[in-house]
Design a binder for these strands. Structure first.
Lengths: 236, 236
DNA sequence: CGCCTTTGTTACGATGATGTGACAGTTTTA
DNA sequence: TAAAACTGTCACATCATCGTAACAAAGGCG
């Protein structure tokens, strides 16, 4: 399956969570849940979601407080947040969006509108995610037709190698540990050996350099892997 | 390719209209114009455009009001609408999405971005509006007579296979998951096994390659099916 | 240079996804 | 109303892909 954007839904009303999950998954997102503020902070750290839907009224920690704390952490500082508020709770702070949220939606909302908001926010803040086409040097990956090409040559990748490349290409140059890659590409719920990542990196390399091209993947000893930004300039 | 999609541009600033028309036509669209809200409603009814670009600030009727009214009419209920808003009208953007716009663009915008948005919205929402004739490589499907032919040979398809091909051909190259196909072809309310899609894909293939022609359908392991764009160029 | 850690690579059994024929039930056609 | 067409599901064969262990190679360090 494609590398889906992950959405964290923080909401205590179970029926609403179910509804959101159904529609979000149908629109191509991966959904993770949290019931209250504390859980939200934990899950946000574990999953590093691409977007957070945050209910304003939560048990334990208020939505605003969660929002504030998320904004203080390095890994979620730039994660888009959409606030859910009930009619009548629209204080000026929310209207001004100065709580750190990027948008807000008033309950009850139409699902069409919610999905449009999500697309809009993601597009504004995470262009790489909503792009149908991602390129890195002479490597291009088309997420619609699910094809990978390297300088006019079609490259065949297995599902895992495809997701792996997709993830790497979303953060060019950034080094990912094996654990991070397992979380992002395999999913945080599956248990596989960290060394398995090596094997798939190997398979990905093999497919990408089949024509004697330069290896686009950089190994960072005792740290992990990344796309090699050198390649962009040195490529030939 | 099919008939050109029609785009209705609702905008009172003449220079912007000219610019949009030029670029849209270059990208293969047919362009019709309206200067104000009233005219927009009239033209929308006459032309039944495939997409509407709607300025938020208009003489006569505000963009939001136009949007609301368009949404109330049967013939434009499902027409995608992209709102144009000026910087600083950000909060109105939210109301715009409430009203039923599918996307919005903040002025000033880059033309590249605008064209990309248009493609994205059309790709997401257009299946409803179909041309009478669709072609893909040497395959042609006539929606009026409900006939399918492959290079001068008439191909007989059952109802489900016909709808399946019809859906695939509307987004050539795009990979659909089994679930997406069930939603689109069977309807979102029926419950059938995902594997049923495989069987019908098989039947569709069998009918299409009865004369030993190339298989136009691509299987993407663990993802779904798509029309194989390679076929267009490789076909003989 | 030896020793240890880390990474690359291969082989292989297990798992999972897909293609296809058969079949029973249902709908449409003649 | 009988025949034909169509539908959804299953069973089974086949093939791709997966995860892991094992070993080779490379790097780091004294």
């Amino acid at each position: 399956m494609q590398n889906k954007p992950t959405v964290l839904v923080v909401e205590d009303e179970a029926s609403l969570v179910t509804l959101l999950r159904y529609n979000l998954e149908r629109d191509g997102y991966r959904v993770v849940e949290a019931r209250d503020g504390e859980e939200a902070l934990i899950v946000a750290a574990e999953e590093t979601p691409d977007l957070i839907l945050l209910d304003w009224a939560l048990p334990n920690l208020s939505g605003i407080e969660v929002c504030r704390r998320l904004r203080m952490r390095a890994e979620s500082r730039n994660t888009p947040i959409i606030m859910l508020t009930a009619r009548g709770e629209e204080s000026d702070r929310i209207r001004g969006l100065d709580t750190g949220a990027d948008d807000y939606v008033v309950k009850p909302f139409s699902m069409t509108e919610m999905l449009a908001r999500i697309r809009a926010v993601l597009r504004r803040l995470r262009p790489a995610l909503s792009e149908d086409l991602a390129e890195f040097g002479d490597i291009a990956i088309d997420r619609v037709s699910r094809r990978v090409r390297r300088s006019d040559r079609e490259v065949h990748l297995g599902p895992t190698e495809y997701r792996l490349l997709d993830h790497l290409i979303q953060h060019p140059g950034r080094v990912f540990s094996r654990e991070q890659l397992l979380d992002a590409v395999w999913g945080s719920d599956v248990y596989v050996e960290a060394r398995t990542v090596d094997v798939h990196i190997g398979r990905l390399r093999k497919a990408l350099i089949a024509n004697g091209e330069r290896d686009p993947i950089r190994t960072v000893r005792s740290a992990g892997y990344s796309l090699d930004e050198q390649m962009k300039v040195t490529a030939g």
